[in-house]
Design a protein around this nucleic acid. Structure first.
Lengths: 237, 237
DNA sequence: TGTGCTTAAAGTCATTCTGACTGTAAGATA
DNA sequence: TATCTTACAGTCAGAATGACTTTAAGCACA
């Protein structure tokens, strides 16, 4: 067998974190490189694909290894393999990266490991990253904003039960703009992917809102061709 | 360096061909396997990724090598890498396939090479293929039907100039159902990605229709993160 | 106790989008 | 000239969408 490009798996890990003013903003996990090339720059977590490891499992594993977390949602993004991904390096070093993107709950993310070399960054304000990782993150953001429905986001970022205002806050953080509460409510209710539990959230300084939950019997759109995946899948219609 | 999974590139090549009744139907190119495993079964064209070859170029190359054609549209579909893709084979034989899908013009496709081991098949009536290729084709069809706009299809399957009826026929073939001519016209005109040339198609047995052409200044939606690709890309808005 | 603040939740209204359908125009054919 | 076929323009009702109003239900505080 002749020499072949190496195969790696990386993951864009999204979560929501409160900013200084307390409102939720979209963040992603990066690791600092400690070797050439791009020594010292921040990069997406990743590593080589083991011989007997499923690709999605590898993405899940390096998510766990960097943040200590489990993904609530995981989907393949794209395979990056340009010849010039690592400028200046030898042709023999060529790496093709299969990139996944993931959602982790904001409550768990708050407790996730953070260190000198692993940290959360705001998605809308990134410095120059190693390799072509800025491009990758940009594309992952595009996918997140375009292709994700209410139920998926609810399930990915929030806990088991949540109010519509919380769900709207998630949406506003992802889209980066404010949404009309009334119209948002109408849309979510029409969609039918989240259902009211009957319970209400107590302890607010105003009228107590209903708690909703993700309806696991509905769902799906894409998720890729994989029939058995990290998320339940049933066709609605 | 330890042993790693091999990397291959395959392509789902779509075109439109007239069926026995003369109406256009969606077809795809397959090659017959002449070795184990799945010897004798039909499969997607593909092969290993060369060390110094861009992934999309590899897809384009094996499209040319099997059909003799150039893709009018080419987009990455998905990277398939389950451990059980080639049942019964040794773990050492594991292959991760990065799959592209392509559109080729129906006029060129008619003149494309076809032989004992390379042939066109109707997309809606496929036999059992080698490996997980039925699953891959199914997913490619899903993407084709869901994610493609008028301009893209026009540009991919038709010639430089075409009537709205031809464009509608393309759409009907891809979607597998009939569309209302009036509403289709309204939609296409509102979208603005195809423009009238002023010329008319002569020689029909009825009122001569306008010829339209693809407006290359408009377009895009996804195409992946690649900024410079096989297809021109300019952001609208 | 009651007034005001805040958000929940329901509802209104105009605009746009969509699917189904009708009517007229412009050629060829018989 | 009558008829057939498709091009192309237009109508109409219902659904979806964005901006906005109204009422409900809690809390804080005077």
């Amino acid at each position: 067998m002749t020499e072949a490009p190496a195969l790696a798996v990386s993951t864009v890990i999204f979560t929501l974190r409160p900013d200084s003013s307390g409102s939720m903003k979209l963040a992603l996990a990066l690791v600092r490189r400690i070797r050439k090339p791009f020594d010292g720059l921040w990069a997406l977590p990743g590593g080589p694909l083991a011989m007997n490891e499923d690709i999605a499992d590898a993405a899940s594993r390096n998510l766990r290894e960097t943040t200590g977390l489990q993904p609530r949602y995981l989907e393949q993004l794209y395979a990056f393999g340009s010849l010039d991904r690592s400028p200046g390096s030898n042709e023999k070093d060529r790496v093709v990266s299969i990139v996944y993107w993931a959602l982790v709950g904001s409550d768990e993310a708050a407790a996730a490991i953070e260190s000198e070399n692993v940290s959360w960054f705001w998605a809308d304000d990134l410095e120059k990253l190693a390799f072509d990782h800025n491009l990758i993150v940009e594309y992952a953001l595009w996918r997140l904003r375009n292709k994700l429905e209410y139920s998926r986001l609810a399930h990915g970022f929030l806990g088991e039960r949540f109010t519509l205002a919380q769900l709207r806050e998630v949406y506003e953080a992802v889209l980066g703009r404010e949404l009309d509460p009334g119209n948002f409510r109408r849309m979510v209710e029409a969609n039918g992917a989240v259902v009211a539990t009957g319970e209400r959230l107590e302890g607010t300084r105003h009228r107590p809102p209903q708690l909703y939950r993700y309806d696991s019997s509905i769902d799906l759109t894409d998720l890729g061709p994989l029939k058995t995946s990290n998320t339940k899948q049933e066709k609605k219609k």
